[in-house]
Design a protein around this nucleic acid. Sequence first.
DNA 1: TTGTTCCGGAACTGATGAGTCTCGTATATG
DNA 2: CATATACGAGACTCATCAGTTCCGGAACAA
Lengths: 217, 217
Amino acid sequence: MTTPTAKPAGPSRVGRKRDHSRDPEILEAALDVLAEVGYEGMTVDMVATRAKAGKATLYRRWPSKAELVIDAIACMKQHPGPGQGQVFLPPDTGTLRGDLVAMVKPKAVSDSNRHLRIMLGVASMISAHPELLEAINDIMLRPRASAYQTVFQRAIERGEIEDGVDVELMSSLGPAMGMFRALYHQKAPSRESMLRLIDHVILPAVGLSAPVESAHE
Amino acid sequence: MTTPTAKPAGPSRVGRKRDHSRDPEILEAALDVLAEVGYEGMTVDMVATRAKAGKATLYRRWPSKAELVIDAIACMKQHPGPGQGQVFLPPDTGTLRGDLVAMVKPKAVSDSNRHLRIMLGVASMISAHPELLEAINDIMLRPRASAYQTVFQRAIERGEIEDGVDVELMSSLGPAMGMFRALYHQKAPSRESMLRLIDHVILPAVGLSAPVESAHE
DNA sequence: TTGTTCCGGAACTGATGAGTCTCGTATATG
DNA sequence: CATATACGAGACTCATCAGTTCCGGAACAA
């Protein structure tokens, strides 16, 4: 059973090395296609073509289309896309409303839009792949949830709102409305609709009133 | 060009008649499969088998899989399923909270659950088939919206809440949270979560407070 | 009765796409 | 240089599924 050529103990050390610097481009291409046509409409050829790679190259790195997609979603946090840093870290503006408004910067909104389209693309996969839901939660939900957590905690500490506010419930309102608009009305969650949600729903729910002059910003 | 046999002016009058009493069963089977595996995972064979019909019978009545699905969704309101009447008509309980709570009866919740699963099943089709979105809105959104409209209007008329409340925004909160829970947490929108939404979000947003004793019901 | 159309069932066709393999080339080890 | 692997590109296999056609039988019209 000692066949040194058939089953090398250590991984092969000979030959050209796999160029892992291409991984991010391939995964990014996969996310693009996913956002555009959804998981079922996406073909491995589309991804390979967009990444200017061979299909065999993809299959050398990921065992199946499903694994590729799961990895692409799982890697979103490490490669958040071109020019996007940490979008959700909340600046301390001194008021709850200021913090909430700062969280719906145009950049954050367009980022959410992409997340949303990717999410809808894999919606049908989720029940069959629980690890996918985990990854999605890690990337799309928990960062926002923790940002909201921080914002509300600050408001509690400065005495602006009372303790005992259901932070989890408040934090879901934004994402839920965004998804709802995206699916039912086929339009991106706009900054305007999010401001309306903040002033007419979230702030009253925590015992604050919207500014009387709700003109702009 | 007068070929009476090739192109009869009136529809054929000879032979066995199409048994349209089977249509509802077929459409119902299509909705079942749709809710279970989504549009892309659904095959015409599955629908035919479940309806105990031949695939040819289906194609004799609908020109394509897409048309079948669109028709199935469009016909939901006429055939709301076994034992389900008009679920959303709001009883007048005398208070806004009473009306809202009455709208999340277990029957209505389970009904919404099925609607939700069907909706997620066709999510990927919607951008390619605008008429599908129309039908979905007719069946799943507008009945609920008009029910909310009535409930809030009654509250305004009895002076319980002030005029000028953003009824549309308030009405989307329930469906949006239901969808969000269904997709992200993979669990049905429960009656309990809806009650939490009513007491902690909707009522405060319209200027009312939840009952101090929020024990049960 | 006879001709026509429907029925459920099943075989068939054609397209599509996941996954594999081959080719010529590039890049690594020894 | 010789060997071994990765690369992009594309041909290939094989399974699945939309849509069609055929079958034996039933329903309906003339």
